[in-house]
C-alpha cells in the first residue's frame, strides 16, 4: 500500500498543475456571486411587483444564492475534469501503474479535489450572501438571524457535493465528454423542467440538486415554492446518498474494469 500522504501529495500536485482547475473554480465563484448579486438587486428593485405569496415567503438568504443554478455547472465541469482528464489523456494507466491500489488512488484524488471544492464553495457562498444582502436593501437579513448561517454554510456544502457527485459520475463513465453531456443538461435543464411538471416533480424533488438546495432556504416554502417532504438537512442527506452512490459506483467500475 502506497503511503496515503504520498498519494495525497501527488494528487495535489496533479490538481494544481493544470489550468482547468483555476478556470473552473474561478468560474464557479464569479458566476455564482455575480448572478446572485444581479438577481438580488433586481428583486430589490421589483419587490413590489411580486405576488402576495412571494412577498410573504420572501427569503433574502435564498435569493442571494440564486446564481447557484448557473455557477454549479462550473463545479460540475471541475469535478468531471479532475477525473475525466485521466482518461482522455491516457494518464490513467501511468497513474494506476504508480498507485495500483484503486481505492487509494481514487479516494486521494477525491479528497484533494473535494477539499478544494469545499474551500471555493464556502468562499463563494459567503461572498454571495454578503454581496446579495448588501444589494437587497431593506429586504435584507443578517448572518445572525435564525437558520441563516446554516443556509450559508449549506450552500458551500451544496457546491462541494455537486463537485463530488460529478467526480463519481465521471469515474463511472470514464469520459469527460460523456459525463458533461449527461450532467450539464441534467442539472441545467432536465431537473429544472421536471420540477415544474405536475407528476414528475414528485420524483424530481429527490434529485440531488433539488433535494440538496433545500439547505439554502431559510423560509420553508421560499418564494412560493412547494412544500417538500423533507427538511433542509433531510434534503442534504438525500443529496449525500446520491454522492455516496456515485462514488461507490465509480470505485466499483475502477476496480473491476480494465484501465
Amino acid at each position: 500500500m502506497a503511503a496515503a500522504s504520498a498519494v495525497l501529495q501527488s494528487e495535489w500536485t496533479k490538481i494544481r498543475t493544470v489550468s482547468s482547475t483555476v478556470w473552473t473554480l474561478a468560474s464557479a465563484l464569479v458566476v455564482t456571486v455575480a448572478m446572485s448579486a444581479a438577481l438580488s438587486a433586481l428583486l430589490n428593485a421589483t419587490f413590489d411587483d411580486l405576488s402576495e405569496l412571494e412577498r410573504a415567503t420572501f427569503d433574502p438568504t435564498f435569493v442571494s444564492f440564486s446564481g447557484m443554478v448557473l455557477g454549479q455547472l462550473a463545479m460540475v465541469v471541475f469535478g468531471v475534469l479532475v477525473v475525466g482528464t485521466e482518461y482522455s489523456s491516457g494518464m490513467i494507466r501511468t497513474s494506476l501503474a504508480a498507485v495500483p491500489q484503486r481505492a487509494a488512488f481514487l479516494f486521494s484524488k477525491i479528497a484533494v479535489a473535494g477539499a478544494l471544492a469545499l474551500l471555493v464553495g464556502m468562499v463563494t457562498s459567503f461572498l454571495s450572501f454578503f454581496l446579495g444582502q448588501a444589494l437587497l436593501g431593506e429586504h435584507r437579513t443578517t448572518l445572525g438571524a435564525d437558520n441563516v448561517l446554516r443556509a450559508v454554510v449549506g450552500a458551500g456544502l451544496y457546491m462541494t457535493l455537486i463537485a463530488l457527485f460529478s467526480m463519481g459520475v465521471a469515474t463511472m463513465l470514464r469520459s469527460s465528454m460523456l459525463s458533461l453531456g449527461i450532467l450539464v443538461p441534467f442539472f441545467f435543464l432536465i431537473s429544472q423542467i421536471l420540477s415544474a411538471v405536475p407528476k414528475a416533480k414528485e420524483v424530481a424533488r429527490y434529485f440531488p440538486d433539488q433535494a440538496g438546495s433545500k439547505i439554502m432556504q431559510v423560509v420553508p416554502e421560499a418564494l412560493g415554492s412547494e412544500k417538500a417532504p423533507y427538511g433542509p438537512w433531510g434534503g442534504l442527506g438525500i443529496m449525500l446518498v446520491w454522492v455516496a452512490a456515485a462514488l461507490a459506483g465509480g470505485y466499483l467500475v475502477l476496480k473491476r474494469r480494465d484501465a
Binding site: A2, S10, K14, V18, S95
Partner: peptide, 26 residues
C-alpha cells in the same frame, strides 16, 4: 514501464507530469 508515449497529461509540463509520479511513490 513505458506503455504508451501519450500516457501523460498534455496540459501539464514534462517536469510536473514526472513530479506527480515521483511524489506518489516517495
Amino acid at each position: 514501464a513505458l506503455l504508451d508515449a501519450k500516457a501523460m497529461h498534455g496540459g501539464r509540463s514534462a517536469y510536473n507530469n514526472l513530479l506527480c509520479l515521483a511524489q506518489s511513490n516517495r
